[in-house]
Design a protein around this nucleic acid. Sequence first.
DNA 1: GATGGCCTAATTAGGACTTCCGGTGT
DNA 2: CACACCGGAAGTCCTAATTAGGCCAT
Length: 373
Amino acid sequence: METLVAADSFFNMDCPETLSLEQHYSQTFLPSLGDVITTPVTQVTVSAEGIVGAVGQSQWQSLHTKKPAAQLQSKKRSRKPRHRRAESPTPDIIVKKNKYNKGGNTLYLWQFLMELLQDRQVCPRYIKWTNPHAGIFKLVNSKAVARLWGKHKNKPDMNYETMGRALRYYYQRGILNKVEGQRLVYQFTSLPKDMIYITDGDGSKEDEDDDDDNSGNEEDLSDETDDGTIASSDQSVEEEEDLQPPQKKSSSSIRALTTHRTRAAPRPLDQRDALLRPTSSSLIQEQHLPIVSAEMLRNLQNLQKIQSLQPTGHASVFKTAQLLGSLCERQAAAAVVMGSKGAQETPGKRSQQGQKSSQMEPPQLLSLISSDQ
DNA sequence: GATGGCCTAATTAGGACTTCCGGTGT
DNA sequence: CACACCGGAAGTCCTAATTAGGCCAT
């Protein structure tokens, strides 16, 4: 009532000092226009904790230690001491364990770039490593990368100018460095040790400094796309969102560096994609857990309840239940096999299979999910 | 009626950009 | 001239933490 009365009196008064009054009332009684109109939209997403998250310091290697992460001193508003919100999980920060991507769909720009660098559809087409050992990469098609980023952030006006500003903020935070004298070339200060490197060519060339072949690459891009324009990058955006199996690029090869994870034989593409997309497009989030809550998830982990579910009515829940049931069974079977082989596990670790699925190691869980599709 | 626990919506603080800009270098 | 690049400043968006208030049981 106070607000209404104040608003009413404000809008009806004929005061020569309207400005000061407006300021006064806007600060004391009147909500802002945005407050009135804006309807809070709550998106409930269920993420399997730990699947994405377990990125501890040990899984990162620093590529560049000359600059400590500058502390971004903030800000004017201070009221009372509160717990600080978790910052972007930069590789140098220790306390970031299990904070990776906390909060659902948040994907930071540097994470986005890392994903692109592990995505055959865009690497080396639009972004590529120029020196994977040093974490140096190049935005081969800066406009396309910016548009992909804008698409991800739902910012249709995103361009390289804007994205570049965000990249430059990473200098201060010690996440990125600029490679002097080379346009569109940046360097990650740290990389996850399980990074997968997609390089163009046969692998004999990627370590060379091929930054001068920009025009050549652009022409190659034009050859590979419909018309070599940004429109073709849009097509790529759609392809990426559809998560279709990546088109095989004959000139591409994937290899792990000797200093990083080694892999005897490359994983199947779909499985690798499951591992490489642990964030917003994570398979378990988008395809298997569309509407269930965490509480429901816990309940569903009881196999009796899972088996008693019927597909009618709640198809997606039923699907999730089936998935969880399958996971539990597979894990139980695996435990039996491991046990028979004298596995290294401590006794009783797998004693409660029905309640363990949520604690499964991320790669294991994801690979099971992937193969379950 | 007082109390405490639970739940939910609103508020607040702060991180991560986004937008704009003026400027420099290639 | 176009483009990449730089960094300041202000704004937006989103999320986590906190607070306030309602409901219910005891």
